[in-house]
Design a protein around this nucleic acid. Sequence first.
DNA 1: TATTGGCACTCAGAAGGAAAGAGTGCTAAG
DNA 2: CTTAGCACTCTTTCCTTCTGAGTGCCAATA
Lengths: 357, 357
Amino acid sequence: MELTDRQKQILRAIVDIYVSTAEPVGSKAIAALPDVSCSSATIRNEMAELTQIGLLEQPHTSAGRVPSPAGYRLYIDELMQDYRLSLDETRSLNEALELKSQEFDKMMSQVGKLVSKMTDLPAYTVATRRSEAVAKHFDLIMAGPGSIILVLMLSDDQVKNKLIKLPVSVSESDLKLLAAVLNASLTDLTAEEITGELLEKITRSAGAASPLAPLVMDFTLECLRQQHGDVHLTGQMRLLGQPEYKDAAKAQEVFETLDEELISNLPAVLPKDGPVQFLVGPENVAKELKDTSVVMMRFDIGEGMQGTIGVVGPTRMDYAKITAKLGYFAENLGKMFQKGGAATPPALTEGTEASDK
Amino acid sequence: MELTDRQKQILRAIVDIYVSTAEPVGSKAIAALPDVSCSSATIRNEMAELTQIGLLEQPHTSAGRVPSPAGYRLYIDELMQDYRLSLDETRSLNEALELKSQEFDKMMSQVGKLVSKMTDLPAYTVATRRSEAVAKHFDLIMAGPGSIILVLMLSDDQVKNKLIKLPVSVSESDLKLLAAVLNASLTDLTAEEITGELLEKITRSAGAASPLAPLVMDFTLECLRQQHGDVHLTGQMRLLGQPEYKDAAKAQEVFETLDEELISNLPAVLPKDGPVQFLVGPENVAKELKDTSVVMMRFDIGEGMQGTIGVVGPTRMDYAKITAKLGYFAENLGKMFQKGGAATPPALTEGTEASDK
DNA sequence: TATTGGCACTCAGAAGGAAAGAGTGCTAAG
DNA sequence: CTTAGCACTCTTTCCTTCTGAGTGCCAATA
C-alpha cells in the first residue's frame, strides 16, 4: 500500500522532530510546522492510520507518536533528505582528519576517536581482510647481542614486527641465511598451508639460527590468522548523553553487549550491497540492543584491506547527519590510505550552506 | 593524637563494611560484628569522636557514618590488611596472563582489559619512558616497486615500522646506502639534536634515495618525541555497575574528565616513592573526580621503559583486594616483559586460602 | 468527501503529605 | 567506663490527588 504524499510528509516530520527532541510528537506540533497547511485534527486522523499500518507507535494512549522500527526503516530508505554538511562542519572535519602519520592500527584507533567526537556517539572501526593473507616478505635484523627484530610484511600491506630475545647470540650471516630460507619457503602460503613438516624443514636448513625458526613461524601464523584488525571501540560514554540512556542500568546493558558482541558479530554483517548500512533497533545483532541502532560505512584501504567505521546510538538518531559525516570520513580516509598513508586532509571544497538545525 | 585500638578497629570495620555495601554504616552493624564486644552505645560514642576528628562523615543527622577522605587515607596507610588472593583468584589471574605474544602496544592494551575485567572497574595502562629515547638502529627494506618498509629500533627496545610508498622506485643498493647513512648519523641522538641542518646533510649523502630522507626523519622525530606510549583506558562502563554512579549524569561527568584528563595528567603523578600509589577522592587530579579514586602501580618493562597500570573507581573501593590483584599483575608482567615478551604465566604458587567474602 | 472545531476521556508524571524506619545523641543507671 | 532506654531527626517510601498533554470521535463545514 502506497502512502499519500501527506502521510509521507507527516512521517518525515515526526521522525525529524522526534530525533531532535526525544519526546513523542503530538498532532499539534506537526500542525504548527510552517509547511503544513491542515489542522491538528486532520493530522490526528493521518497519524491514526500510520499507527494502524505499523509505521508509528504510541507509548501510551494519551501520548504523542513515535516512529516504529518500520517507520525508521521507511524513513531511511525513502524519506530521508540528504544532510549537507555546513562549511563549518566540513572545516572541523578537515581539521580532525589531520591524522598524525602513524602505524596502521593507531591510525584506525584515532579515526574511531574522531568519528565519535564528531558525531558525539560511540564509534568503532575495524579493518577487515578482503582475502586470505599471505606473507610477502621476511626480514631479520640484528638489534644487539641476542636481540633480533623480525619484520613481516603481509600481502595486504600491513607490516608487523616483533622483537625476539634469545639467550644465545646469532651471527649476522646466520640471520641472512634464515631470512633467505623464510623468504623462499614461507611466502605466499596461507595459514593452512604452513604445516609442522614445513617447520621442520626450515629448522633444518636454518643452521645456527634454528632456535629462531619456531618463534618466527608462530608469529607468522598469528598474523596470518588474524581475520580482521582489532576492533577499536571508543566514546562509549557519549551514549550517556542521550536521554534514552539516562538510566545507568540501561546504558550498562548496552555496553556489556557492545564490547564483546560487536567485536565478534558486526564484521559479519558488513555492508555488502552499498557503502552505508543501517541496522535499526531490532534488526540489530543482539536483542539487548533492540533500542540501539548502528550506522556503518566502509571504505577502501590499500591492497587487500577494507575498513569499516560505525556509529552506535539510540534508534532515534539523526541518520542523515551521521551518514553525511561518516560519508565524508569514509571518502577522505579512503583517499588518504590509498595514497600510502601520508595524511594530508583534502582541499576544502566549497559547498552550499547546510540546512542544519 | 593517637587513636585507641578500639577506635582503629571501628574505623577499619566501617571502611570494610562500607566498601562492600556502599551504605552508611550504623552503630548497630558494628556492634553485631563477632569480634566486637561492646554495645552499640559505646560504638556510638566512639563514632562521634571519630567524626569529630574528621575521620568519619555523616551524610545527614540520622544516617550512619561514612569514611571521610582522611579516614580512607588512614585506613590505607595503617589499617588496611593485606588481602590474600585465593587460589581460585590466582588461577584466574594466571589464565588471564596468558597473553598472546604481540606487539608491545597491543600487549599493554590487552593488559588493561584484563585488569579491568579482573577488578570489575575501569583500568588504564601507560608505558612511560624513564629516560630520553634515541634511535638505535635503522633498517630499510624493499617491499615492492616504490614500497619501502622503514624499521626503527629505539633505545627502549621498542620497534616501530612504517610502510612508505614512493612514486618513484629506488634500487636496493640505494636503500642500503641510505640505511648506512642513517645508522651512522642519526643514531644516539635525542630529538633536540636532530636539526634541519642534519637533514640536509643526510639528504645530500643519500644519493638516489634522497626523497626518502625527510620522511624517515619525520617518522623518527615523531617516535622519539613520544614521551609515553598511548594511554589505554578500558572498561569505563564498569563504573556504571557501582551504585554511586547509577545516575548517568554523574558517571558521564567522570568519564568526560577521565578520558582527556587522565591521559595528560596521570603520568605526571606517577608513583615515585613506592610501587603502589593511591589517589583518594579530593587528592585526585581533577575536582570532577572528587568522589573517585585511583589505585596505580608501576612495573618495570625492558630497558628504558616503565609501565603503569591503574584502576579507577569510587572512593569506596576495595583497596586491599585491588592492590593485591594489581600487585600480582605488576609482578608477573614485569617478569614477562623482562624475559623479552615471551608470555608464559608464572607457576602457580600455593598460598593460604584468602579471606574473601 | 475531506477537513475542521469542539469536547469528553485517558493516562503519565508531578506534587504533596503521611507513615515507617533507621540511626543518632543524651541521660541516668550499672 | 559502659550500657540500656528514649526522644528526636531525617530520609525514604508509598499513597493520593491534581494537572495537562494528547487522543478519538462527532457533528458541522467547505
